[in-house]
């Protein structure tokens, strides 16, 4: 399990990392926690000539509150997100999602930015990032730009990131009173990835579903917002029956993936089941009844 030869760089600053990225272009790969890139390199499914390790770079692992939003550095590990008291208090959905990733070893090494930039169709974060309507900040030597999560994921393993860009920060909202969120997942028994993962965020106002966002991962080639589910719920009074009916739309219009662990048909059915479970839990949390 030895990768093909490569040249290793460990920039100390973001500027240096960007310069290296500019210089080596397509032949370079960014290394964050290494939990996707290194296995691919060891199996020689990936053989970049240059590896730019962001692990020595200072200042990209933080979780802090800024103007009603929570800013998270891209190099923040899953374990830090899982255990952050700030996130647990103000955006527990992200901590709940991080806790569902892999095992302790994976969570100690893997990073939020690395996972999102890799855009594995069965990764956990994308569902929650979509449901939270997060903002993704990307730096290049040309400057900084930000896109909404909904625009970030383009296809399987493909994102908005352009050559020369590094995902540096993810901003999620602090969830207020009356808002509840939940991530529910059916794990692939071997890898632990999501066969289906659904994140739901709801805001109740006067007993009605005022705001609603549902992100689904694992089902299709990329994570998506289940807009059909959201439309079926918006402005209505939450009931068990309504949630179940709306959840039936979770995989509508999506070409579901199929593999040894789940056929396309089963995946679509499970998308509905886990959407309903996530919705029920999110509504209960929004209403302040524990779930």
């Amino acid at each position: 399990m030895i990768p093909a030869p490569f040249e290793y760089h460990a920039p100390k600053s973001l500027e240096e990392a960007l310069r290296l990225l500019d210089r080596h272009g397509d032949e370079a790969k960014l290394l964050a926690g290494g939990h996707s890139l290194l296995p691919m390199m060891k199996l020689r499914l990936a053989a970049p000539r240059f590896v730019i390790d962001l692990g020595r770079l200072k200042g990209l692992d933080y979780i802090r509150e800024e103007q009603g939003m929570i800013a998270i550095g891209a190099m923040t590990t899953h374990a830090e997100i899982e255990n952050s008291s700030l996130l647990r208090a103000k955006c527990p959905l992200l901590s709940e999602t991080a806790a569902a990733i892999g095992d302790v070893q994976v969570r100690n090494r893997g990073t939020l930015g690395g996972s999102l930039a890799h855009a594995d169709p069965a990764a956990d974060y994308p569902a929650s990032i979509l449901a939270l309507e997060a903002q993704m900040t990307m730096n290049s030597s040309m400057g900084v730009r930000a896109v909404d999560a909904a625009e970030f994921f383009l296809d399987m393993l493909t994102t908005q990131l352009r050559p020369g860009e590094i995902l540096t920060e993810i901003r999620v909202p602090a969830l207020g009173k009356g808002t509840g969120a939940a991530y529910c997942k059916l794990s692939q028994p071997a890898s632990g990835y999501a066969v289906v993962g659904v994140a739901a965020r709801v805001t109740l106002a006067a007993g009605k579903l005022a705001q609603i966002a549902v992100g689904v991962t694992g089902v299709g080639p990329k994570a998506y917002r289940a807009v059909n589910v959201e439309d079926a719920l918006r402005g209505k009074k939450a009931s068990e029956k309504l949630l179940a009916e709306a959840a039936r739309h979770a995989a509508r219009g999506v070409e579901a993936l199929a593999d040894l662990h789940a056929s396309a048909g089963y995946r679509s059915e499970m998308a509905a089941v886990f959407t309903r479970r996530a919705l029920e839990r999110a509504v209960a949390r929004a209403a302040g009844t524990k779930a």
Binding site: Q188, P189, A190, S191, L260, H261
Partner: peptide, 9 residues
């Protein structure tokens, strides 16, 4: 096709 621990459960 179940040649590694990512697929062999």
């Amino acid at each position: 096709i179940t040649g590694e621990l990512m697929d062999y459960a």
